[in-house]
Design a protein around this nucleic acid. Structure first.
Length: 277
DNA sequence: ATGGTGGATGTTCCA
């Protein structure tokens, strides 16, 4: 992304989010992301690294002097890498009581006042969209319900940003075929209704602020395609939400589609939003 | 209707 013009009020804040699908394996790809997007803050999901094995050198070498992470062996895991100092926030619950490292939050220390930043990795939900047959689907729905309720209880939240791999593509044009995916986990009505209810607790979809809803937009393409670009069976699973007080400061967005072709890349691509805060 | 690929792990689970 090019530098902002710098006319509007406040400091420029650029936040990127990426499901990196193993931080240790792909830490070398962070350089490409930083060169392309120049984020002030980078939120990662599926780091798949226990806290005691977190690779501190990679973020430090890229100029991210502040890190917050919550990881475990083999699965899940989230991290926030930042050039801006922050205070870690620890008031959120252990979602669904499973201790599975799907959320980390900080308050960014900015001249205009703190900005609250939440980094989420919502459960993928398994293959079968049925609570009884597939407990992972039930866990996903319960997770989103619990998150919605928690944010609903925080009425009047301001100067907040929520990002992450939410594993749900809420709009018809967030998937390659709305009709063919209505019964596919990530786009079923119980999921999309719940995600919208969570958004409606007090957020604006910052990427759809820039890209009209009648335009296809994806951030993930399955590994299980011979040619992901040719088949283009994508879904928009990765999101950036902001509270309405920040909407007027939104400057630009980027979906780094080229990252899907990086050598040994993730199946998700980075998403970035710049705003004046 | 099925299988396709990839990561971490360990003789399979998760995505």
């Amino acid at each position: 992304m090019a530098k902002a013009a710098g006319r509007s009020k406040g400091r420029s804040l650029r936040i990127a989010t990426w499901n990196i699908n193993s931080l240790r394996l792909r830490q070398g790809l962070l350089r490409g992301l930083v060169d392309a997007l120049e984020p002030d803050v980078l939120c990662l999901q599926e780091t798949k690294v226990p806290d005691e094995l977190f690779p501190h050198e990679a973020p430090a070498a890229l100029g991210f002097g502040h890190v917050a992470f919550r990881g475990m062996k083999g699965y899940n895991g989230v991290a926030i890498l930042s050039r801006i100092p922050f205070a870690r926030l620890d008031d959120a619950p252990d979602w669904c009581g499973k201790g599975d490292c799907r959320h980390v939050a900080v308050a960014l220390d900015l001249p205009g006042g703190p900005v609250e930043l939440h980094d989420f990795y919502v459960p993928a939900g398994g293959d079968v969209p049925d609570r009884e047959a597939n407990p992972k689907y039930g866990h996903k729905l319960d997770f989103v319900d619990e998150a919605r309720a928690w944010f609903a209880a925080r009425k009047g939240l301001s100067r907040a940003v929520l990002v992450g791999d939410l594993n749900i593509a809420p709009l018809e044009n967030d998937v390659w075929s709305h009709k063919q995916l209505l019964d596919v986990v990530s786009h079923t009505p119980p999921e999309t209704e719940r995600l919208t209810a969570w958004l409606d607790t007090g957020f604006v979809d910052a990427v759809r602020h820039f890209v009209p809803p009648d335009e296809k937009l994806y951030t993930w393409w399955s590994y299980r395609n011979r040619d992901w670009r040719l088949s283009d069976r994508g879904r928009r699973l990765d999101h950036v939400w902001v509270t309405p007080d920040l909407q007027g400061g939104l400057v630009r967005h980027a979906v780094l589609k080229d990252a899907r072709d990086w050598t040994q890349g993730s199946d998700h691509v980075p998403v970035c939003v710049e705003m004046r805060v």
